[in-house]
Design a protein around this nucleic acid. Structure first.
Lengths: 212, 212, 212, 212
DNA sequence: TATGAATGAGAATTCATTCAT
DNA sequence: GATGAATGAATTCTCATTCAT
């Protein structure tokens, strides 16, 4: 289920030639850089184009307006992220629940940290944009993948799965985001992550208890 | 430790007369409304003034520029929030750790939910502003109050307090924020909150375990 | 019946202070000048503002966009013109039909010639604009006034009044407009006008004939 | 006397091959459609090319710039129109003057109504262009043809021919144009046309009268 | 002191035109 | 020749801020 991009935010055209694809990549990368260096409310189309080494006009061939650019950037990012989560979840089918959750945390954390600058940039970009639809679509995919995964765990009560999934994802995603806002050092981050695993594991226990 | 407001972001004058206080309140309230109705990137000083029933000129008597207005709004909000947390923490001195954490969650959740519109508005306002300093100062107060509280718990290993505190606050604050992004219904919210308490309790157990 | 200006073309605010009225007049005059000197498709908001000795911003306080400015200019002009026609028609009540028509031609011709530059400018401005509504409203007023006038003529068959009125106005307005496109010299213009009166008179005769 | 097209407005090449002629026709037709559907100030070269099923590049092979395109469109149209008038006038040589004028009205009216959309489109296109030269050349041809025709009428005083011709054409052309602005229904149009013939006939009488 | 008209730098967006493929 | 991606000057419009009244 591809996210139903609203008409007004859809890109003008998809790149057909290799040259165009290169241009688009440059524009996306430039957007991230601008977001990071001058912040979201000083992100201007001219600045992005300049940084990308393209003319404004070219940018507007692909995006009908600034919002569409930022929307596409987020979409692209969330698409990759959702896919990673789906793959990670799939790989854990049939495993013990605790291990599943640890894999989920690992996957999400990894994805966010890999290019921390991008993560930070996108968190900031959000205010420029009404991306609720995007977030919802992403959340739906993550929910589905996680629920399916947990349903396959041999050691888990499946009655409250939906609610458990929602909590797990809300806590994990929220915690990671907040961790990015407080800029933690390496050690603190590792510790936080360990704690998070403990806490999520405990949540699973709290419901699987009666099953045993 | 009150946040060291940079001079450039400080309001021009503190309200000495009742009239001024009323005006200020109106302006803050108007800002929230504008934030909610038209979004952060269409928040204009004229619009705020209009909504507040004041002239732009008058608004500029109180705030030297737009950023100062938003900064002050956040400052005021975080001040109240920090105070609530401090009071809540203080009230729990000497109590069992689990109860402490539950009180903390209750307090934070309550504060955020009380006026959900304000909460949402402020989350959105962030892009307009470099409010890292504000956030840091708030985090420091919350950390201090929480650590002090936990230190007084009779049933807690005090060796890892700092790290535990950091995790607790990161998880709680992050989860609540994320919960606001997914608009949960009443039931789901209650469930999430219950889970959150379970998870935080489990974190405490994990360290106090060896102590016992 | 004031012309129902569409919402999107309506001015932002009416001038309240004397200063504002002066500004508005300057803007209108500047628009005419720009229309005349550089033509409608090189009429830019900046150019108009510059010529008016105002900043663009000021202009935009009164008009939400360029079209609204041109629309207002036409509206103002047609308002005056319609009024002139109404007065002229009213003044002829009860007179012989031929004299009426001559007065109508005189009035219209006079109004258009008085400030030929304005007339020419407005004819040109029309393409920038969807002013059908304006034209229709004007035509309706002119029709009404003319019909009422002719109805009071003692020497006219009143059965075909509507159709006669429509022809008279279409012919007169059209002829004058076309005369402006061919730039006639003084003598030619006078001759044309005499002919026009003859022709219109003949039209009246053609229907009043059976009456006699 | 063919209109002396300024070099800067001349098409780049005359179509030597059938293919080129087809392309040209498509481009002209597309221009008309764009003029009608989106209006003159949103007529863009890309849009026209797209609608014509050609690339912009190709269009620029035929027209050195946008103005040249619109100029050529008007030129082509007026050329045909002038020819029709010349033929119609020629066909009336030696006939009674009244019949001549009726034929003239019939011819012009017919030509304008045949493809009312084209007529409307071209009236609108005028703003994009300084086509005074075109109009003048056309007027000159129409004048010449009409004068020659009237000169051959057995029942007309030839002393004021020039002035009569000018009036006739100004009135007829102007009236028809204005009729297009007020969108008249079928019946009203027929009536107007009948009136117009009566009026023009009367003009002839007014001068031929003394002759008889 | 309060007002709101005026300012103008700055941002978004368009579109005629070119030119590498 | 034909194509259509790229260009960037030109234009419209916004909005934080000032200042005369």
């Amino acid at each position: 289920m591809p996210p139903a991009t609203p008409r007004s935010l859809a890109p003008r055209k998809r790149p057909r030639q290799a040259r165009a694809a290169v241009t688009l990549d440059a524009v996306f990368e430039a957007t991230i850089q601008v977001l990071l260096t001058v912040g979201p409310h000083r992100l201007t189309t001219t600045r992005v184009a300049e940084r990308a080494g393209v003319s404004v006009g070219t940018m507007y061939q692909y995006f009908p307006h600034k919002q569409a650019l930022i929307y596409a950037l987020n979409e692209r990012y969330l698409e990759v992220l959702a896919e990673k989560i789906e793959i990670a979840c799939h790989a854990q089918h049939g495993m013990p629940a605790r291990q599943m959750v640890e894999a989920l945390i690992e996957c999400y954390w990894q994805a966010k940290t890999e290019r921390a600058d991008v993560t930070r940039a996108l968190y900031r970009s959000v205010a420029e944009l009404d991306n609720e639809a995007l977030i919802d679509a992403f959340a739906a995919r993550a929910d589905a993948a996680t629920t399916a995964m947990l349903a396959s765990a041999p050691d888990l009560d499946t009655r409250e799965l939906e609610s458990i999934t929602r909590t797990l994802l809300t806590v994990i995603f929220g915690t990671v985001r907040n961790a990015f806002e407080r800029s933690l050092d390496e050690a603190a981050a590792r510790e936080l992550r360990r704690h998070l695993a403990v806490m999520c594991g405990a949540l699973l226990d709290s419901t699987s208890g009666p099953l045993a």
